[in-house]
Design a protein around this nucleic acid. Structure first.
Lengths: 306, 306
DNA sequence: CGCGCATCATGCAAAGCGTTCATTGATGCA
DNA sequence: TGCATCAATGAACGCTTTGCATGATGCGCG
């Protein structure tokens, strides 16, 4: 007796189409490429049909694959709704979710995620704690926030961290900058440049903390609040910057400025959602985190979920 | 990391409610009672909620259980539709399904099943081969039928048998018949009675083949085409009958006649669908069998699926 | 009251699914 | 042509689900 169709298979098909490849789909699902390959083979054997053409970029579904995808698109949201409802039955529909952010750029993805979340949990009070804060976890302890977006886990803190995603921080140069010829930039390359950053403490700037300070490099500095303003300064050769790739992707596509990896392996940042342990199990908290991860995965280029 | 919700769980909930008990649900799903018990426990642990009240007959769902049931009712038909569509993609939407029956009463459940099937497979020509036939399998070999409903598997025949269900054949007596006092009837009890049957060869009557002939009992005989006519004769004390319990259940409920088991263990019949091996894998054939099993399981009292 | 029956839970042994790791083959790019 | 990417496959191992045997509990009936 062959194994029946399961939601697992629908999740696989959906991920396959979203990511456009078996390996990427596997990563999205927190599975291995091998597992997915086996799983797909088993599905195809069961149906006696192939589900997609392997040798084509982008990936192309057969009619049977398309029908399965249609089923996924129909069923998976219904399952999501049901799970949320069950969460509400357990924890109640109401609550508060005051969010503290330490990074400027986070608003780019936070707003869409909140827009997605709000109609699902109309009775949860959703707010952003105004301003930027060097220490969201502190705000949580003072009960002035319920969830903080942070870039480092401090295991000593009594909070629960939900991993969000990992992204590359790239150096941004004017298109005709002399360093634009390089394939990658090193710490020393910044020595004679003006580094343009957000006006926040150096500890919150990964490029300083992880690259320049260890190398003893102290470039000239300049700051601006807005991403677009920073880019404008870079384009007009007033300096260089180091920003998340996803934050500047649209500008890169239009060749407004040039991006280069920082260091041999590239420089990467990570983001986590910090919540009080007592609230980590709440249905709407978990769903908020899932919503953030889902919206970011589909809208931010070049990130990888943690 | 806890295991995610799967269709398996939804099928379990649906079966649980349909059958009204864990053990019966397990049988319906071709699993053990143990497996379902474990599965339900794991589900409840995962949600942190109980899904149904164990100590209550009939089984009562908690709100969370009801929500899961609603999801099942929503999702499982969609999955069924998709699987049928994929079957159509593989085997085509058209075909023919000429059905040969050897037993009179089968029409009671065959018609509803056909009504269910027809809209799902509008391009499959669905017919009943007219009249009753002692040998449906023969008709299949002569290519005059595509599927036969038979009560015995002849392993020597080159056909594929799909098991349908098992049912009890009960003796039917007038309410004030002297034998109505017994808890069960034996072969000898028929010796001085008139046995009323359908007008078919004795080999097709289980009560003759399995009970009376082995005991050398030859009661007086009378026959009628229609179930209701047989019952009318029984009620008016013209004789006794032996019919499938599910065929007479509505009359028993109204106490029109009295039913008693035949023999110590009761007398049981089984039904199979016979098809040519080459057609056993066709999507619409499998779906027809599934449809029959499903409609019979839900509409015929006292049967057990094989 | 105790017996039997029906029903569900539970502890321990076998399949199924996923993982790791290695390997191969196919494809596209320089 | 060589190199990188991607997917398929196979085998050994571990965790999860299922099965089997048994035990607990509740209910009806004498």
């Amino acid at each position: 007796m062959s194994t029946a169709l399961e939601l697992r298979h629908l999740r696989t098909i959906a991920a396959l189409v979203e990511t456009g490849g078996v390996a990427r789909a596997a990563e999205r699902l927190n599975l291995t490429q091998s597992a997915l390959s086996h799983q797909l083979k088993q599905l195809e054997d069961q149906f006696g049909l192939s589900l997609f053409e392997r040798k084509s970029q982008p990936l192309k579904l057969t009619p049977a694959g398309q029908r399965l995808l249609a089923l996924s698109d129909q069923v998976l949201p219904q399952v999501g709704d049901a799970l949320r409802d069950i969460g509400r039955i357990r924890d109640g529909a109401a609550g508060s979710l005051r969010i503290a952010v330490e990074c400027h750029t986070c608003f780019d993805w936070l707003m869409p995620a909140m827009d997605e979340f709000r109609p699902r949990w109309p009775e949860v009070e959703l707010d952003i704690v105004s301003g930027f804060h060097a220490d969201p976890v502190g705000l949580i302890h003072q009960n002035e926030a319920d969830l903080g977006i942070v870039s480092e886990r401090d295991e000593a803190e009594p909070v629960h961290y939900f991993p969000l995603f990992r992204y590359e921080i790239v150096a941004l140069l004017a298109n005709d900058h002399q360093l634009a010829g390089r394939t990658a930039l090193q710490a020393e390359d910044f020595a004679d440049e003006t580094l343009i950053t957000y006006p926040v403490p150096d500890d919150m700037l990964d490029v300083i903390r992880q690259v320049l300070r260890p190398a003893g490099v102290q470039p000239r500095r300049r700051s601006s609040e807005l991403t677009v303003a920073i880019l404008q300064l870079v384009a007009s050769r007033r300096g260089v910057a180091a920003l998340p790739e996803w934050a500047v992707a649209p500008y890169l596509e239009r060749r407004y400025v040039t991006a280069r990896p920082i260091g041999e392996q590239g420089l990467f940042g990570e983001l986590y959602a910090a919540v009080p342990p007592s609230r980590a199990g709440l249905a709407y908290v978990e769903d908020f985190v899932d919503t953030v991860r889902a919206t970011c995965a589909s809208s931010l280029p070049g990130i990888s979920l943690l």
